[in-house]
Design a protein around this nucleic acid. Structure first.
Length: 581
DNA sequence: GCCGTTTTCGGCCCGACTGTTTTCAGTCG
């Protein structure tokens, strides 16, 4: 059973317990466990097989450790079977309607016998819902609206898309007179790969002009609520945007509060409590006395903490790091010196080889690798060995004309379904840089896929594995691959692993990056550009790496050329074909 | 169900807004 499946079991248990009105802290324990398990890079199957002590994991105690063990060994959990028998599965969907929580959903089920969304719709239309205690005509209307938007509202969007809205909204609100400070917080500010909603924070004395202007933002479809300090809208795209207006002495506290994550805030609050303080979105208080809140630094300082970069605020390692003075100096976009995965119009890219080199140079890159597809990737017009060799001759010519940038002769060689690589060893040996990627046979078993990738890492010509999980955010699940084993193999052979900066991919993900760092494996952040504009996605990859706690020294393509050359030489067993001028 | 620099029992973050109430429960973030 995979980690994701175990996490799903715990989430389902939490859903049912919540619906049944169980102790909310018990529900939270299951949610926390689901999160811990779902985010782990190490496989629980392996940990159990090794007899590891699972209670060392955060939020996993004796009881849940035993349940994980049972799930891994038998694939089932008696507790869940029993719970499922008590509540029809479709009833749980009721809780996913905005405005319906466990209490109201339970009332609908118990008093009206509603077990699915269609019955709910009919009951609202027949005005049976408003007769229930605690419900009314407005609730009924809200449910009907909620039914319409439930599907689109639950969809998270890519960080890159959220960034466009965030920039527009900032520009839109900045024009309001009296707006002193303006920031978009939430998971957007934490740089999470997908974003569920936007939290806009504004400092102004008077909230009305800001809210009036906000309602006029062209993408707003509906104002969901509007109060003194808080307003929520839904955009035509379905994205919800929350606006909070605060006074300047609360800006830091509110920024901390609305940046989150939820779990990070819970830790902050308990730390405040331990120190006899109270922290909320308005500030830090001792009793009713305001202590701090103007800036984030000020707020963290009252809790004996340094300022923590938003990307790390997930209650994973940041508090341990901060307490022991080991908070990393996170990687920045300006640290990036090279880009080692890009395509040209020789395969499925749009720009010519020369245009790509020109564009890379304009962006200040000191070294790049041209890595077109190999022949197996027929859809992209992958290159045969002789075509590659011809391209590399072209690169020889270009090297004479372009100074100040090193152009590596590379290839993105396909890892074949049956194992092995798509280009012969002799040709590969002449390349400066080889990315091996898996494009076919994505439905094979975890063992086979992991085996194919581990074998590729053992190949002397291969430098790195491209997009190592193959996922496309919101479109395609990752293939079954044991990342732990891949990282161990990369460590053993001194190879590198890619963090693909395409906003749709972003794999390895943050947790994988952290695990690679622990194993001393260097990450390569690459754009996988298919056009000159494609080179601009590097910043998304940097953001993901920051979430994994990576510093510049953990990333191969931050190295100056001379250092990079040495590392590459070592990775290829002391054999470097050219790369030098 | 977890967890321990107040604790192995008794806590577990805190506030805004809405709708349905007549002082508050439920939901959300």
């Amino acid at each position: 059973m995979t980690n994701a499946e175990i996490a799903a079991v715990f989430d389902e248990i939490a859903d049912i317990l919540e619906f049944q009105g169980e102790n909310p802290f018990r529900v939270r324990a299951y949610r926390n466990a689901a999160r811990t398990v779902g985010e782990m890079a190490e496989s629980l199957e392996h940990l159990v097989a090794q007899g590891a002590d699972l209670t060392q994991l955060p939020g996993i105690g004796k009881d849940l450790a035993e349940k994980i063990k049972t799930l891994v060994e038998t694939g089932r959990l008696e507790q869940l079977d029993k719970l499922r028998a008590q509540v029809p599965e479709s009833v749980l969907q009721l809780m996913h309607i905005p405005g319906l929580g466990p209490r109201k959903a339970a009332a609908l089920y118990k008093q009206l016998g509603i077990t699915n969304l269609e019955q709910l719709r009919r009951a609202c239309q027949e005005h049976r819902v408003q007769k229930l205690r605690g419900f009314g005509a407005k609730t009924e209307e809200a449910i009907l609206r909620g039914l319409q938007v439930a599907e689109v509202a639950s969809k998270r969007i890519l960080w890159a898309e959220a960034d466009q809205f965030a920039q527009e909204i900032k520009a839109h609100l900045a024009q309001v007179p009296g707006v002193e400070q303006l920031e978009v917080a939430g998971s957007y500010r934490r740089g999470k790969e997908t974003v569920g909603d936007l939290d806009v924070l504004v400092v102004a004395e008077d909230s009305d002009p800001v809210m009036d202007r906000f309602a006029q933002y062209h993408a707003v479809a509906e104002v969901l609520l509007r109060g003194e300090t808080k307003m929520s809208v839904r955009l035509h795209s379905g994205l919800q945007v929350d606006l909070r207006v605060v006074h300047h002495q609360s800006f830091g506290a509110a920024l901390v509060y609305f940046t989150g994550s939820k779990q990070h805030n819970v830790v902050l609050r308990s730390r405040a409590k331990q120190r006899g303080l109270k922290i909320n979105e308005y500030g830090v208080y001792r009793g009713s006395e305001y202590i701090a809140g103007r800036t984030e630094e000020e707020v963290y300082a009252t809790l004996d903490l340094p300022w923590i970069p938003p990307e790390l605020r997930e209650a994973r390692w940041e508090f341990d790091w901060a307490d022991s003075g080991r908070l990393p100096k996170l990687l920045e976009l300006k640290d990036i010196r090279g880009d080692l995965h890009m395509h040209t119009n020789a395969t499925d890219g749009k720009a010519t080889l020369e245009e790509m080199v020109q564009a890379a140079k304009q962006r200040g890159l000191k070294y790049i690798a041209i890595t077109d597809h190999s022949k197996r990737v027929t859809m992209a017009g992958g290159l045969k060995a002789e075509e590659l060799l011809a391209q590399w001759e072209q690169i020889d010519q270009l090297r004479k004309r372009f100074r100040g940038i090193h152009i590596l002769k590379g290839v993105e060689v396909d890892i074949l379904e049956r194992g092995g690589l798509d280009i012969d060893d002799q040709t590969l040996a002449q390349a400066d840089w080889v990315v091996a990627s898996l494009h076919y046979g994505q439905n094979q078993s975890e063992d086979r896929i992991t085996g194919r990738i581990v074998d590729a890492l053992a190949h002397p010509a291969v430098c790195a594995i491209g997009h190592p999980t193959g996922r496309l955010l919101g479109r395609r699940e990752r293939y079954a691959v044991d990342i732990q084993r891949v990282i161990e193999a990369a460590a053993e052979h001194g190879k590198f692993l890619e963090l693909n900066a395409n906003p749709l991919r972003l794999d390895l993900d943050d947790m994988h990056c952290a695990l690679a760092r622990e194993h001393g494996v260097l990450i390569v952040i690459s754009t996988d550009a298919h056009s000159t504009e494609g080179l601009n996605v590097m910043r998304y990859g940097v953001l993901q790496a920051r979430r994994g706690g990576l510093e510049a020294r953990h990333v191969l393509n931050t190295r100056p050329w001379s250092q990079f050359e040495k590392l590459l030489w070592r990775a290829r067993g002391g054999k470097l074909s050219t790369g030098k001028k």
